[in-house]
Nucleic acid binder design. Structure first.
Lengths: 203, 203
DNA sequence: ACATCTTTTTACTCATGCGTCAATACTTCT
DNA sequence: AGAAGTATTGACGCATGAGTAAAAAGATGT
C-alpha cells in the first residue's frame, strides 16, 4: 500500500515493526514473571499469534531474551553517548548522565529482569552484555573521580558510590508504574537531589 | 549420641539442622540462577542427597521457596523490631534501622531473588510476604516523616526517598560478595553517609 | 539379635514447554 | 487469474523436571 509521497511500507519495514512489537510484549512479560517462568505460548497469545509465528522472527527463546536485553542496554549506552558529546564540568556531566539514564529507563521499561536473567544466555552473549554494562560503570566512576578532583563533590569511594546510586536507579522499575503519580522527569529530578544533597537538613 | 551433660542431639534437632542446611543451599542457588531455572535435582546434588530426600523435608518446590523467603524477610523484621525497642530520636532510629538491615542482609544473603520470584508462590503466600514487606516500608516512611518534624532532615517526599534507599540497599547483594574487600559494617556505614549527606562538597 | 521407626534411594509417571515440519493462508507482482 | 514469494498455523517429537510409591538402608530401643 503506497502513501501520498509514493513511499511504501515495505515488507522489510512491516517485518521490523512486528519484531519490535513482539520484543515489547516479551520484554514486559519477562519483567513481570521472569524469563524461565514465561512460556513462548504465553508471549504469542498476548501478541495474538501462535508460538510458531515467533520462530519466524526469532531463532529461539534465548535470542528473544538477548534482543530484549540489548534494547535495554541501549538506554545506558544512549545516555553515555549523549553525555560524552556534551560540554561542561564532570559534575554537570554526572548529573546529566544519571538523569537521562533514569528517564530513558522509565520511558522504555525493562532493565530489571533482563539483569536477573542474564545467566540464561550462552556465555558469549553474557560476556557481550556484561561488557556493555561495564562501559557505563567505568564511565560513571570516571566522572565521579573527576568531579572529586574538580572539588565539586566529596572524596567518596567511587565503587561504593556508583553501586549505591545504580542500585537505587535499577530499582525504580520495581515501584514506578506507567501511570504513576510522578512523571519520569519528576522522579529523576528527585533522585538526583537526594543523591547530590542527601536528606540531612542544613542551615 | 549423648554428650557430656546428658543432652542428646535428638532426632528433632538433627532434622531441623538438615532442614536449615537445605534452605541455605536452595537459597543460594535460587539467588544465583533464579527459582524457575533451578531444578530440585540440582539443589539435592549440591547437598549430596537425591531429590526425593528433599520431599521428606519439604512438601514441594514452592514450599522450599516460601521458607527461603521467610528467612529473608526475617532480616527486615528483626531490624524493625530492634529499632522499635530502642530509645532515641526518629533520625537516630532511621539510621539504625537501615544500618542494621544492611548488615543482616549481607550476613544472611538472600533477598534479591526471593523478591523477584515471589510470583511463583500461591496468592495466599504472596500476600503474607507482601504484607511483611509493607510493614517495613510503612515503618521506614513513618520514621522519615517524624525526622522531618524533628527538623533533622529536609522535607523530602517519603515515598520517593524510601524507594530510593531501599533500592540501593536491595541491590547490595548484586555486587557485594562474601569475600568482598569491604566488610558489611563498612559498606553499611558508607551507604548511610551517602544517604544522609549526599555527595556534594560543602564548606 | 530383633522389631520398630526414621531416613534415603531407585524406579517410575506425568505435565509442561521448546523447537520442528509440512501444510495452509495471505501478498504482491506479472 | 495464476505464479512466486511471504507469513502463519496445527500437529507433532522430545527433553526436562516436578512429584510419587514402594523398597532398601540406617537408627534406636528392648
Amino acid at each position: 500500500m503506497a502513501n501520498w509521497n509514493g513511499a511504501v511500507a515495505s515488507r522489510e519495514e512491516v517485518r521490523e515493526q512486528k519484531r519490535r512489537a513482539a520484543l515489547r510484549v516479551a520484554s514486559r512479560i519477562f519483567n513481570e514473571k521472569g524469563y524461565h517462568a514465561t512460556s513462548l505460548d504465553e508471549v504469542a497469545d498476548d501478541i495474538g499469534v501462535t508460538k510458531t509465528a515467533l520462530y519466524y522472527y526469532f531463532k529461539n527463546k534465548e535470542q528473544l531474551l538477548y534482543e530484549c536485553m540489548k534494547l535495554t542496554y541501549n538506554c545506558g549506552q544512549t545516555a553515555r553517548l549523549e553525555t560524552e558529546a556534551m560540554d561542561g564540568s564532570a559534575f554537570e556531566k554526572l548529573q546529566f548522565l544519571y538523569g537521562r539514564f533514569m528517564e530513558l529507563l522509565m520511558e522504555e521499561r525493562g532493565v530489571y529482569t533482563t539483569m536477573a536473567n542474564i545467566r540464561a544466555l550462552p556465555e558469549e552473549a553474557q560476556q557481550e552484555l556484561i561488557e556493555r554494562r561495564r562501559q557505563l560503570d567505568r564511565y560513571s566512576r570516571m566522572l565521579i573521580e573527576k568531579a572529586i578532583e574538580e572539588g565539586a563533590i566529596r572524596s567518596v569511594d567511587t565503587r561504593i558510590t556508583s553501586n549505591f546510586f545504580l542500585g537505587a536507579v535499577n530499582w525504580i522499575l520495581r515501584w514506578h508504574t506507567e501511570d504513576d503519580a510522578m512523571t519520569p522527569k519528576e522522579v529523576s529530578a528527585h533522585f538526583l537531589d537526594l543523591f547530590m544533597n542527601g536528606i540531612v537538613k542544613r542551615d
